[in-house]
Amino acid sequence: MLIQLCLKMCLLLLSVLFLTACATTPTGRTQLAFMPDAEVNNMGLQAFENLKHEKPISRNVQDNQFVHCVASAIAREVGGEWEVVVFEDPALNAFALPGGKIGVYAGLVNLVDNQDQLATVIGHEVGHVLARHSNERLSQQLGAQAGITLVQAIAAPQTAMGQTAVSLLGIGAEYGIILPFSRLHESEADTIGLDLMAKAGFNPAESVALWLKMEQASQGPRPVEFLSTHPSHTTRIKDLQARIPKAQQLQQQAKAAGKNPHCVKG
């Protein structure tokens, strides 16, 4: 009798967990994400603070103005407060973290030709945050109790537990562990990011040019860090091209509403 009661209680708890954990992403996909968003946001905040202490921050006025201009236009479409930092690092990389944090590396700023290409990357990274991909990965791979432990461990990113935590947030390459987002997450972030940049008034057609540039850069002796942690698949450009017409309609609506960003690369 006691065993049956325990089993019933366990099933009830699992049912409650499943129902409360189910959520819908901006693309309409159902996901399992049961980590408290406040805790995941705290992880993002801590990880960002760690990076700001470990990496030099760019003092280049033109780079900062350019990045902040693009990121601010994207952030206005999302809402909330977002902190944007340009890191003095030659890597072709960028990231967005739960808790409203955006990091862009100087190497990526040097690579892009214009505001629209930079908006492609920032929109993509913010797309991961909007879709709660970090929460989903924590929930799927670790479970609630382990996830709470990682919230505490992220304060010590050099530990094995801390490295796992920052990896799941999407910046694992910083600490030597690469846990790339899945193909599903990448495709979803591409879709969300493309629409997001278009709603901000940027040209979504430049997304194809950006990914082609990234692919070309990856042919060199050193792999592109952004592509190593965010795998580029052969279907990515085809998928983007198929969605661009709809995104261009969003851009036209944005421009009609007076959204016409003019962010100039120095």
Rank of each mutant, 00 (worst) to 15 (best):
Q115C: 05
Q117P: 07
Q117V: 05
L118C: 00
A119E: 04
T120A: 07
I122F: 04
G123W: 06
E125K: 05
G127F: 03
H128Q: 05
L130Q: 14
A131L: 09
H133K: 10
S134H: 10
R137Q: 11
S139T: 11
Q140G: 07
Q140N: 09
Q141T: 15
Q141I: 11
G143V: 01
G143D: 04
A146I: 09
I148F: 12
I148C: 05
T149Y: 02
L150G: 02
Q152A: 03
Q152G: 00
A155Y: 12
A155D: 07
Q158S: 12
T159M: 11
T159C: 05
A160K: 14
G162L: 06
Q163S: 12
T164D: 13
T164V: 12
V166W: 12
S167P: 11
G170L: 12
A173E: 08
A173G: 08
A173Q: 15
E174F: 07
E174N: 12
G176V: 07
I177T: 13
L179P: 06
F181H: 11
F181Y: 14
F181C: 04
R183S: 08
R183D: 05
E188Q: 08
A189F: 11
T191W: 06
I192N: 01
L194N: 05
L196W: 02
L196R: 02
A198R: 01
K199P: 06
K199I: 09
G201S: 06
F202T: 00
N203V: 00
P204D: 00
V208G: 00
A209K: 00
L210K: 00
W211G: 03
L212E: 14
K213P: 02
E215R: 09
E215I: 08
E215G: 09
Q216Y: 07
A217C: 07
Q219H: 13
S228L: 13
P231T: 13
I237Q: 01
K238E: 14
K238F: 11
D239G: 11
L240C: 00
R243S: 03
I244D: 06
Q248F: 04
Q249S: 13
Q251W: 12
Q252S: 15
A254L: 01
A256T: 07
A256G: 08
A257K: 08
G258C: 05
G258W: 01
